[in-house]
Amino acid sequence: MPASSPRKRGEESLPRAATPLLGFGRLLRRHGFPVAPEQGTSFMQAVTLLGPRSMNDIREAALATLAPPPDRRDEFEAHFQSHFYGNTSAMVESDADEETRIKDDGGADEERIEAEQREEGGELSSALEQLSSREFQNDEDRLTTFRRNLSTSLPARRSFRTVRTHSRGKLDLRRSLREIVSADGDIPSPLLRRRQTVPRKLLILIDVSGSMKLHTSDYLKLAHAAVQGADRTEIFTFGTRLTRITAALRIRDRDQALARAAAQVDDWDGGTRMGPTLLAFLSVPRFSAFARGAAVVILSDALERGGHGELETAMRRLGARAFRLSLATPLAGDPRFRPATAALSAILPLLDDLVDGSSVRSLTDFILSLARAAPAAATIWKRVS
């Protein structure tokens, strides 16, 4: 590690080992990376939690807390190599073939992190972020209504279980014969049963990469309301890893639930490998079963890094299992938006819906309308174009 520069005023109380960490945040800001002071503090806290045992731990902490944009990951790695290794001609190795890590929230490791980290936004603050914050403050009643109406608004299916009915059912031969025997051969009124109707499962997959940073908080609050409102709801987050957070969101108190979820997700505001993480989801039989016959809603901008072949494969397999496959992207909140990127163009024919995911209002209205039929996404966007 190169020799550190003289310490600035206000850093005298920090350990000497913290100086290179602070310096790295300043280096990124000088090169145009949107790194807020709070992110620098989170970076040092993350390094402290990790030990660290190796330089790779420091790199992972930097990716998770400093959140370089996906299209600047190579530049970020070059700065990391230069600052911590003194290697100014570092060549960045592609991590496209790295195996996606999967984390289930089965209940273990729940007390690993002491408190939820809060982020003010720093240099990322803008009129757009202010608008999102004000809009969310006015959405408490909307989320309450969403939670109460969700279970009755989801698409329904006929269960193999049956219930007793007085009309419009099939003859319950076994019960009818018992009644005849108990009545000494008299013929009673026919006893009927019908197949029970139950709500379909709801599966929500939330993109927590750096490009979705301004929307993650609202998405998690929506996910908490969904879990509280419908018993068969499953929530996963994905970025560079896949994490199931359903158990955390079953806690009734929202602040406690979100703090627990924050402790379980390791790849906040980092890069994204949407295709590989969705394929990892499908590779686990227990997870894949959550999608079978479910209404699947993906909250992501679908800005896939590199090729989109894996994303297309994953969406095709997911769509084959799901009752309805929907992508809600905040980019669609702009009237000028068109699904013109290579990735969106490739997966558009596989989607049932491509909708606005820029606000709680648009998302709650859409999810509550899932039981109503609608034209396929490709048909709608062909008309718009």
Rank of each mutant, 00 (worst) to 15 (best):
D104P: 09
T379Y: 04
L173C: 01
V35G: 01
A346F: 00
E119Y: 12
K382H: 15
S42F: 05
P330H: 12
L131A: 15
P69K: 10
G210K: 01
L50R: 15
R168N: 11
S5N: 04
G309E: 15
T145P: 06
A314Q: 01
Y85F: 09
A346M: 06
G229K: 08
R158S: 11
A294H: 05
L242M: 03
D184S: 13
T246R: 12
M44A: 15
S176M: 12
L327I: 01
E99K: 11
D97H: 13
A322C: 00
L173R: 13
D365C: 12
M55Y: 00
R101N: 03
I204A: 07
D253Y: 01
R324T: 01
R148Q: 14
T197Y: 14
L311H: 12
A340T: 15
L220K: 06
G210Y: 02
R316A: 15
G106Q: 12
D186M: 09
A156G: 14
P330S: 14
L22H: 05
R241N: 06
R59P: 00
G169H: 06
A127W: 11
P285K: 09
T145N: 14
S326D: 09
I58T: 04
S82M: 03
D95K: 06
S94P: 06
G271V: 00
R147T: 10
G86S: 01
I245L: 09
I180L: 10
L128N: 09
R336M: 09
L150D: 10
D218M: 09
P349R: 04
S82D: 07
R383E: 15
L331T: 10
F236N: 02
A374R: 14
A226Q: 06
I347C: 07
L192S: 00
P375S: 11
E111I: 00
A376P: 07
D186L: 06
E310L: 11
R26Y: 12
L22G: 05
E98N: 05
S133E: 15
D57L: 02
D172T: 00
L154N: 08
K170G: 05
A96D: 12
P349N: 05
G306D: 12
R273T: 02
G106R: 13
P70R: 11
